[in-house]
Amino acid sequence: MDKRKIIFDTDPGIDDAYGIIAAMKQPDMDVLGICTVAGNKGIEFTTTNALKLVHLMDYDCMVYKGAGESMLKVSEDAGATHGADGLGGVKLDYDESKLSDMHAVDYILETVKANPGEIEIIALGPVTNIALAIEKDPETMKKVKVIWTMGGGVHRGNITPVAEFNYWYDAKAVEIMFSIGTDVPIHMIGLDVTHASVFTGNDLTFMKLEGGKLGEILFEMVGPYIESYWKHSRYTGCVIHDLLTVIYAIDQSVCPEEGIYHSNLRVSTKGITIGQTVVDLVNSWKLPVNSIVPMKVDSRKYKEIFFEVLFGKEKVELYKKHVKS
């Protein structure tokens, strides 16, 4: 079987870690490389964290360091949410030799050139690298098979009332990315669906009890996340935005077909709404479709797929039978 060829573009980050690990465990996905970008933490942190994940999973791929700052030059450190090191304070080793000398932008372009129409990019952070690649060589980037991007939101924000962190961090890059959305399918997993898919205390405890060593590590990782959600939003649990993006890339049926909008999407790059995605769900502007935006999610199915991918069929049966979210 030919495996799906995946490049991650990411700023790990706890929820990035969940997503990357899920893809590494998914049998039909081949993670070719992990590109890093500044976002949740600075570029040195996110690169080290990517190396830690490769080491933890003993996965055969390289890490490519990318953009250290956004095109619009904002900076916000999400340290409080992700823990000081960005991975919830979990101690993990890494192997420096897995870091390539090649810049992430060049890696993306070279890989797409070598595999035209076959590369899927899963973007879990600010999309600066993708935008830089498009600026450098738009024709090559139009040969990307599909982009799965976590960011934006139609009716909600998190860093401002209307903007989501990744897209707010580099709104200019978002604008550039969606400029190829008429050639490359771009699926946007935004806050409308991620916030509808909460991992509860029950879910996470099940993972710790039945997920072996990996389950324990992942449980430990979300500690600061849970604290922060309790403090700010009074959830007992957490939203793992990036994981939903990867699970959706694995199996699109987690987002029911009738809730998926093929729309024109633009992004605000100015004013108090900077970073906001403006998605014309009702096609009132009659502009070209450049985005695929799910607005509904089957949250239970999402978690079942995650547990199956990570821990196998037997465990997910146990989950289905005994655990209510």
């Binding site: 401002t160 939003s233 605000s268 709404t273």
Partner: peptide, 20 residues
């Protein structure tokens, strides 16, 4: 909540409503 209003560009006229 806090309500502010965008006065420029793409989102002109939008009420930016922050509940938190």
């Amino acid at each position: 909540c806090n309500i502010d209003v965008e006065t420029e560009d793409l989102c002109i006229g939008e009420s930016v409503v922050g509940f938190d």
